[in-house]
Design a protein around this nucleic acid. Structure first.
Lengths: 109, 109
DNA sequence: TGCTACCTATTGACAGGCAATATATTGGTG
DNA sequence: CACCAATATATTGCCTGTCAATAGGTAGCA
């Protein structure tokens, strides 16, 4: 996961505000059940992203229960686009090392 | 890079034995210059992979110069295949969170 | 003599992610 | 009522991999 978490959080918040618990569920659902984030993973991350100005949070109450809802800021939206670009480059690079195009022995180099 | 290094090293060694310095060059070349590994990154990693039995090393001498050449073991070859599978699943999962298929608002859910 | 390229190797620090833990509300079941 | 599962936030401390920095050595060229 290392290094890709921020992108996931930003992406999931793109459609609208969510609270931490719902973010975990959203990531899990969108990934087809593969990505199971823990609270110890996302809460510090959300705080970090808010400190960086990429997210904004507010309490909203459901009955007596309180939730902290996070939403993207403008900077967050921009950052998400950068994450997407970085992800594309990253996977391309790793992919081309992991699955190299075999050099046809018959062709001139 | 975190977590994907092992796969890169194994992949680069698939075509034949290489020494550390050449591995760095190979990864850089195959990735189109994007991935620049440092010696402090790969030497410990190579040692770890050898300890795990995925690599085997031997000294070979070029004049007075010595190089430690690493090559894949059978276990290493199997591990590489697993890394490729894991990589595919990983990118699929992250990708589907990062770039979700937009749900058409007009269609029934 | 010095510089660059080649080559291996270790050290220490840093940061992110995770398990474990704590706390509290809500609602259902026995 | 007691208990449990699900909902929900939050912190702690550890682990491990990565990287920068550093060190040392050969080879060849100007």
């Amino acid at each position: 996961m290392r290094g890709h978490l921020d992108g996931l959080l930003l992406a999931v918040l793109e459609q609208g505000p969510l609270h931490g618990y719902a973010i975990i569920a959203a990531v899990q659902e969108r990934s087809g059940g593969v990505l199971e984030l823990r609270t110890g993973t996302i809460y510090p991350a959300l705080q970090r992203l808010e400190r960086l100005g990429l997210l904004r949070s507010s309490w909203d109450a459901v009955g007596e229960r309180r939730r902290r809802c996070y939403e993207l800021t403008e900077a967050g939206r921009r950052s998400l686009e950068e994450e997407r670009t970085a992800w594309r480059e990253f996977t391309t690079a790793i992919g081309s090392v992991l699955n190299p195009v075999p050099t046809s022995p018959g062709l001139a180099t």
